[in-house]
Every structure is written in C-alpha cells, then in structure tokens.
Amino acid sequence: MLFYILRRFLYTLPIAIGVSLVCFALVHLAPGDPISAILPENASPQLIEEVKTAYGFDKPLPIQYLYWLGNVVSGDLGTSIMTRRAVLSEVIPAVGNTLILAACAVLIGFVVGIGLGTIAGYNSGSILDKAVTAFAITGVSVPHYWLGMVLIVLFSVNLGWLPATGMGSLGSGELPFTLDGLKHIILPAMTLAVIPAGIIARSVRATVSEVRKQDFVQTLYAKGLTSRYVFVHVAKNAAPTVLAIMGLQLAQLLGGSILVETVFAWPGTGFLLNAAIFTRDLPILQGTILVLSIFFVVTNLAVDVLQMMLDPRVKRV
C-alpha cells in the first residue's frame, strides 16, 4: 500500500504542473494585460516597459512560465502584482479561512446528507423517501449565490439574528471558537453545505436501498440479528461508494467557492481568486490554483486509501 500511496503522490506533480500551465495560458489568452490594472490611465510606453521588466513580463511566455516553475520548486510562489505581498502569505491565510468554512460545511452537509439518505434508503418508496428526494434535488439545483442572498435577507436583514458578512471581530486566520465567530460562519456554511447534502443524500439513499436488497441482509435477519447489527453491516457495505462521493465533495468544498465567499465577504481562496481574476493578478491566480489543485489531488488520494482500508476488495493496480 505504501508503494501505491507514494506512486499516487508522485502523480500529483504532473497534474499540478498541467493545471498551472493551463491556468497560465488562459490568463495570458484573456483580453487585457497582467499589468494593466496597476498602470495609470496615461502610462507612457517607457513606464509600461519599466513595469513589465520589473515584474518579469518582458520575457517570452515560455521563459516566464519556466522562471515561475523554478521558483515554485524552491518554495517561492512569487509576489502579488497588486499588493506586492508574497503570494504564499496571501494564499495560506486564504486556504486557512476556506478550510474553516469547508470544515463546518462538511459537518453540516455530511451529517444531513448521510442522515436523510439513510432514512430514505430504509423507507424506500414512502412519503419520507419522496420528501428526502425532493430536498436532495432542491439542494443540488438551488444556485449558491441566490440561496446565500436569501439566507442573508432572512436571518440578517429581517430577523437580525446572524451577521451578514465577514469573519467577525477575530478576523482572518482565527478559529471561530467564539460566539461571534460561530455566528459569522453559520450562514456561509449552511449555504455551502446544501449542495453536498443533496448529492450525498441521494447517493446514500440509492446505495443503502441497493445494499438492503442484497441476499446477505436477508441472511442476517434470518440468523436473528437485530436491526441495529444489520444496519452496521449495511453501512459497512455502503461506505466505499459513499466515501468516494464524499471525497469529491470534500475536495470541492476545500477548493472554496467564489460565489459564496464573495457574497459573504469570506476571505478564503474563492474571494482571493475573484479579486485576482478582476485585477489580472497572475502570480496570485497561479499560486492559488496550484495549491488548490494539489489539495484536490491529495484529498482524492486520501479517500482512495481510506476506501482500501475499509474494503480490501477494492484493489488498486
């Protein structure tokens, strides 16, 4: 298994390089210029050249890319064009904030999704099942942006129970273990949790329902096992499939959400990317996407390993 993990980990390198290459090319193909956002309206050709040289944009694109890649290998993701801060010092707090939000959303989404999916799977065809399915479809279909605004209007503006935006008085990088911090995280976490909750509920429902139809479940009942013990076996058999889906959802949440983080002014990776896209802040875009792609690959790897541990039948070549 160690060899497998090592090999999979090595796979992350070409994936990360591929992602960064695509990102680099896309940003340069887009209209506008990486330095246009910082140049004054009447920048002279001389100033444009000086700035390009200072920021390394005077070299051919492949050379620029190789320079960047070389620095990344030595642990330097570059410097933001807009803020002149080190990219790493921008990305790390943003990743931390997204992780905090994602952890809460995961907690809500997975608990609700697994709970409702299991109930529906055990009551296949009933009104309860239909209600859960309706919830799941709504959850999957509802636009994040819209739901976030609705929750803000309801809980912040009309009821005044929860704050509408930001991370609260603690600010970036602090864990929300204060009442103020928790209050700030509830709405964005709920918004973010709805889609994974819907997807997981549907998957769990389908898997549980499928597993319950298998012969071994009837055998277990016939042997006189109580429902509680049978449930444990059903859960164990359903786990690998559900885990794979949960892994994808987890990775997606860790990647941050541009829309949700912008609506709630939550200073995570989505918020960072949004600002970087509009200001053509190439180093920030490159650095953030690289870190996120590594995250995505590593999360998937972790899920795969977990699946193997739970179900040895899942063989990896």
Binding site: M149, S156, V157, P163, T165, N274
Partner: peptide
C-alpha cells in the same frame, strides 16, 4: 474600512447593522 466588493452584500451588511 471593510472590503466588500459585492454590492448586495454591502447593502445587507448595512441593513443588518454590521
């Protein structure tokens, strides 16, 4: 000074007293 690029978010923050 709070950074809120989204206009509706700003309005919600004002209406909710933030």
């Amino acid at each position: 000074l709070m950074m809120m690029p989204d206009p509706t978010t700003r309005v919600a923050a004002l209406l909710s007293g933030q």
